[in-house]
Structure formats: C-alpha cells, structure tokens
C-alpha cells in the first residue's frame, strides 16, 4: 500500500491535484470569505477560457509540437465573435470554421515539410494578430447575446466556472483518452513509427490534432468575450504562456504523447488561482507572471525529482 502511494506514477498523477488543493486551502486560510459560492465564482471566473486554451495547447503537445500562437489566435476568434458573429452570424460562423480549417492546414504543413512547429506558429501569431487588428482596429464590439447568457449562467450549489471547467475536462477526456481513435492520436505522439507501421496516416493524425486545437481556440475566444462582452486584438496575448503552463502543471509531458485533459484543466484552474493568491498575500501584481514562472519551475523540479527516483528503482 505504501509502495503504491509513493510510486512515481502515483505521485506524478497526484501532483496537479495536490498543487491545486494546497493553493486553494492557502487562499481559504488567508481569506476565509472566499470560501463561498460568490467568492469562488469571482476567483475562478476566467478559468473557462484559459482551460479551453490549455486544452487546445494540449492537443498540439500530444503530437510533440508546441503552439506559440494560441494566444493571438484566441484574440482573433474573440474579435470575430464580438463583430461578425454578433452582426452577421452566418459570416461569423464561416469565419470561425475557416480558423479551424487554417489550424488543420498548419498541422498538414508542419507534417509535410517536417517543420519546427515553434517557428511556424511564431510566424502565424503575427498573422492572427494582423487579421484581428484588421477586423477590430480599436477595442470594442459586443459579444452575441447567447454567448453572454451562457457565460452568465448561475448553476446551483457549485459556481458555473467550476461546473463548466469540469465538463470540459470530462468531455475531452472521453474524446482523447476513452475513444478508440483517441488511442491512435496519442500513439502518434508516443511512437509515430509504430502508428505508421500499423497502417495509420500520420498526416491525418496531425491534422486532426491541430484542427481540434483550432476548435478549442475558437471556444476559448468566444467564452472570453462572454465574460468581457467586448473584444480587443491583444485581449488574449498572455494565453500562449498560460496554455503551455497549464498543460505542464496538469502533468503533461512535452514529448511522448503523455498528456491528461483532466490534469490540464486543473492546471488552468491552478494558474487562475495563483493570481488571487498573490493578491491576497499582498504581493504586487508585478510578480504575477514571475510567480507563475516560479510555480512552473517548482513543479518541473518536483517532477524531475520523481523521475530521477524512478530511474533508481
């Protein structure tokens, strides 16, 4: 029993949830008032868009790539959502579908030319930003009513952001971890050659994963304007970093197809909480990003420690 509880696998799996729980307890201790429906709702408000962006990044990381453009992409979809989707829904839907298709095409390009994803996505981040600026030159626009309504839903007992985040995590878990094609997709990250030898198309797996990332990027943008009601091309620039950090905090590995959707959304929640935690500690907002970097490094250090122990076993 003790063996099982101290096994590297178990520790690795528990790390994300444990970091979240510790952070939450610390916050409750500092500000007991946050332990309420309203308090949690306020603290975790922005979890939904961040969790969706994290899931998008997770799809890319599953196939051993990295997306440095997810932030600007979320910004672009937010801009489309607050303008075209609100004014001429059909055009908006087409544009958003086009965004998803563009992501799938990027996956195909990266596979076809064997390109380093970070350079390609870094370049694309400018393209997304440029299009967003063209669509919405100055901050503004309005989110469609139904998006605002959806994001403002009051769920009983447990606040909406928590319910929504858990639902997102479960749905993606079903799709990626429980479906039969999901196994192939993850396998393409674990041992691409084996998947190729078993007769699967690696081009298709890459396109599916990038397409899925694009789809969740769109959802992230829409949920974001549901909260802010207006958009701006730069609204989600920080999401690139949040998304990578979220995946890693959630126990995902950079290579080898070892990811966890549940972990990723927990990672996103942890990240959102850090902000409140630092505020309650009266640490200046200057250290916000730094603290996130620090947490990232600590988690990676812990994981390196666990892995090293595994090497000794």
């Amino acid at each position: 029993m003790v063996d099982r509880l101290t096994s590297p696998r178990f520790l690795r799996a528990v790390l994300p949830a444990a970091s979240f729980a510790i952070l939450l307890i610390a916050i409750f201790y500092l500000k007991p008032r946050t332990m309420s429906y309203f308090g949690l709702n306020l603290m975790l408000q922005y979890t939904v868009p961040i969790a969706l962006a994290t899931i998008a990044q997770m799809f890319i990381i599953t196939v051993n790539d990295l997306d440095l453009s997810i932030g600007p992409f979320v910004g672009l979809t937010a801009c489309i959502g607050a303008t075209w989707l609100a004014d001429t829904p059909l055009l908006g839907i087409l544009a958003l579908a086009g965004c998803v298709a563009a992501y799938a095409a990027l996956g195909a390009l990266i596979h076809w030319r064997n390109l380093p994803s970070i350079v390609v996505t870094l370049g694309m981040s400018f393209v997304w930003l440029g299009i967003a600026v063209l669509i919405l030159p100055t901050p503004g626009g309005t989110a469609p009513g139904w998006v605002k309504w959806l994001m403002g839903v009051k769920t009983p007992v447990v606040p909406f952001p928590i319910v929504a985040t858990v639902v997102i995590g479960l749905v993606v878990h079903l799709l990626l971890m429980r479906s039969s094609y999901g196994a192939v997709l993850r396998g393409a990250g674990g041992n691409p050659r084996a998947i190729g030898r078993a007769g699967w198309s690696l081009l298709k797996t890459k396109m599916v994963m990038f397409g899925a990332a694009g789809f969740f990027g769109v959802l992230s943008g829409l949920s974001l304007i549901g909260l802010t009601s207006a958009a701006d091309a730069h609204i989600a620039d920080r999401y690139t970093l949040y998304a990578i950090a979220g995946v890693i905090l959630g126990g995902g590995e950079f290579v080898g197809g070892r990811v966890s959707p549940i972990g990723a959304v927990i990672g996103a929640m942890t990240l959102t909480l850090t902000g409140s935690f630092l505020t309650f500690l009266k640490i200046s907002p200057d250290w916000q990003i730094g603290a996130q970097g620090g947490i990232l490094i600590i988690v990676l250090a812990l994981r390196a420690l666990i892995n090293r122990r595994e090497g000794l076993v």
């Binding site: 039969s180 196994a183 192939v184 993850r186 396998g187 990250g189 674990g190 041992n191 050659r193 084996a194 998947i195 030898r197 078993a198 699967w200 080898g256 197809g257 070892r258």
Partner: peptide
C-alpha cells in the same frame, strides 16, 4: 513497435 504511452489494450487496438 509499441507506443509506450498507451496501455496494453490500446496498443492492441492501434
């Protein structure tokens, strides 16, 4: 030619 990140059953499915 197994995928190390998948379970035994998942490798059979692949």
């Amino acid at each position: 030619s197994l995928c190390p990140n998948l379970t035994v059953a998942e490798n059979a499915r692949v």
